[in-house]
């Protein structure tokens, strides 16, 4: 098991957001998480990545045999947990190259690999730049500064491709992408799919999922996963919305 979340509860500023969430992701699987605004999807992603604004009040998370909640956020990242942000952040004056070379060498050190120098890094980054059709001057530019919304998202997927993590969490990476960019991002994800890598894809739309065909689909509502299924669940949601599922869930309570 790559990721095992059990009864996860978390709050922020005294507001309980996650209310006993369970989720299991095996290596090689792609999980989609859908759910209405404010359900707690980004919260789940943030808690898994270790953002300290959130307080975990109960539950456990096992990541590849380790107690994830015991690890600092940068350790989690170096051990292979990656989050593509709903809103990627700008860092003025810091080049993508310096940023990603530092990041990659951190991951490599964790794996006992020697660091890549500037030239090796350029070489290594070249394919990934093409894969996501990033602009040629990408590495020289400051991290996300002056990037359009879509470019920022693509840059996150580019970073994901560079770091080759074990678990990729994508928080609404498809929002705000035009059709071509969506294709590039989906292609990037599909290229990275492998038997020893897992994905959690948070999205509101069927579009991306049509491209990447998730193995499992979950509905997150009010801090819990209230329904799980296969790809057919996506169609059900597209057709009937969350109402039916939510009502059934509330009646069952």
């Amino acid at each position: 098991m790559l990721l095992k979340v059990e009864n996860l509860q978390a709050k922020i500023d005294e507001k309980q957001i996650l209310k006993g969430l369970n989720l299991e992701v095996k290596a090689g699987e792609v999980h989609a998480i859908m759910g209405p605004n404010g359900a707690g999807k980004s919260t789940l992603a943030s808690v898994l990545a270790g953002r300290d604004d959130y307080e975990v009040t109960a539950g456990t998370v096992d990541f590849d045999g380790e107690d994830l909640l015991e690890l600092a956020p940068d350790e989690r990242a170096r051990k292979g947990l990656f989050l593509a942000f709903q809103y990627p952040v700008e860092i003025p004056g810091v080049s993508n190259k310096l940023f990603m070379q530092t990041a990659l060498n951190g991951v490599r050190a964790e794996q006992g690999l020697p660091p890549l120098d500037m030239f090796d890094f350029d070489e290594y980054a070249k394919d990934k730049i093409e894969l996501l059709d990033m602009r040629a001057d990408l590495l020289e530019r400051s991290v996300n500064v002056g990037f359009s919304g879509g470019e920022k998202k693509r840059n996150d997927i580019f970073q994901m491709a560079l770091l080759a993590p074990k678990l990729c969490i994508l928080d609404e990476t498809d929002s705000g992408l035009d059709i071509d960019a969506l294709g590039l991002v989906a292609n990037g994800i599909n290229t990275l799919r492998s038997p020893d890598r897992g994905f959690i894809v948070v999205t509101h739309y069927q579009r991306l999922l049509n491209y990447i065909k998730p193995d499992h689909v979950h509905v997150l509502y009010n801090g819990q996963i209230i329904k799980s299924g296969g790809f057919e669940l996506v169609h059900e949601l597209e057709e009937f919305g969350y109402d039916g599922i939510v009502q059934k869930h509330e009646q069952a309570q």
Binding site: A49, G50, R51, D53, A72, P73, D74, A77, R78, F82, L83, F85, P88, V89, E90, I91, F99, M100, T102, A103, G106, V107, E110, Q159, L163
Partner: peptide, 15 residues
Amino acid sequence: GDDQLFYCKQRGISE
């Protein structure tokens, strides 16, 4: 910002 710092840390860069 916390956002910038967290972004860096999430990429494996120490604080």
